[in-house]
């Protein structure tokens, strides 16, 4: 089997949500000398990008995305240690602290974004729901995260997103973090209005925004 075929198989295993095949192909990739970084970026990530796009177009639904993420994790458990050993640095793209903001117990949107971020190589610290503003900041400080992401389905919790930005400024750490907001009642215009850095109409767009914002920050 060629190295190109192995990369294609890795992508397919993620697209089809086949954790067993993803793990098996990952082992095969290492045996045949495929660069583990390449296996992750040109195999697994390629597959996950396709799943994210399909979900955005509603060609697939959340269960298929969750199964793809499981396959991705099964493969990463094998490939990531090898990549670390070889390259000596983490393959993680960045660190994110995420939560459904205070006052809201709806978490399906936040869960989707957290899962897609993880599947796209981010280290995600998910604080769950009804998360107080200061808890998000404290966790970001503790984990030296790059991004703070807050979600809500309720208009009555949107003011807490404004509080998040205000508290970051009050603590003098606003510039340390990329702040992203999203969820049912949140619009792109409102996100910009309150001074957030990023927004996504859906999980796929949120991931792309996180990648782009992080790239810009690292390029400074």
């Amino acid at each position: 089997m060629s190295k190109v075929q192995i990369l294609d198989d890795l992508a397919d295993s993620v697209i089809n949500g086949d954790a067993e095949k993803a793990a098996g192909t990952s082992r095969k990739a290492l045996r045949t000398g495929v660069d583990p970084f390449k296996a992750i970026s040109e195999g697994l990530m390629k597959g996950m990008a396709k799943v994210g796009e399909d979900f955005s177009k509603l060609k697939v639904y959340l269960p298929e995305v969750m199964m793809a993420a499981e396959a991705m994790n099964a493969a990463l458990a094998i490939l990531e240690p090898a990549a670390l050993k070889k390259g000596g640095k983490s393959v993680k793209k960045g660190k994110v602290v995420i939560g459904t903001i205070y006052g809201d117990i709806h978490d399906i949107g936040k869960n989707i974004v957290a899962m897609l971020l993880r599947a796209n190589g981010f280290e995600v610290h998910d604080l769950g729901r009804e998360v107080p503003v200061d808890a998000l900041i404290n966790k970001a400080e503790e984990t030296k995260s790059d991004i703070i992401a807050a979600s809500t389905l309720l208009s009555t919790s949107m003011p807490y997103m404004e509080d998040l930005l205000a508290l970051l400024k009050e603590k003098g750490v606003r510039k340390k973090y990329i702040v992203m907001v999203g969820g049912g009642p949140v619009t792109r215009e409102w996100a910009a209005q309150i001074g957030a850095d990023g927004y996504g109409d859906d999980g796929d767009e949120a991931v792309k925004a996180a990648q782009e914002l992080l790239r810009k920050v690292k390029a400074r």
């Binding site: 639904y61 959340l62 298929e64």
Partner: peptide, 12 residues
């Protein structure tokens, strides 16, 4: 109910 969420497609 979220169509496309945990339940999956229209049938689920």
């Amino acid at each position: 109910p979220i169509l496309g969420g945990y339940s999956g497609g229209p049938e689920g």
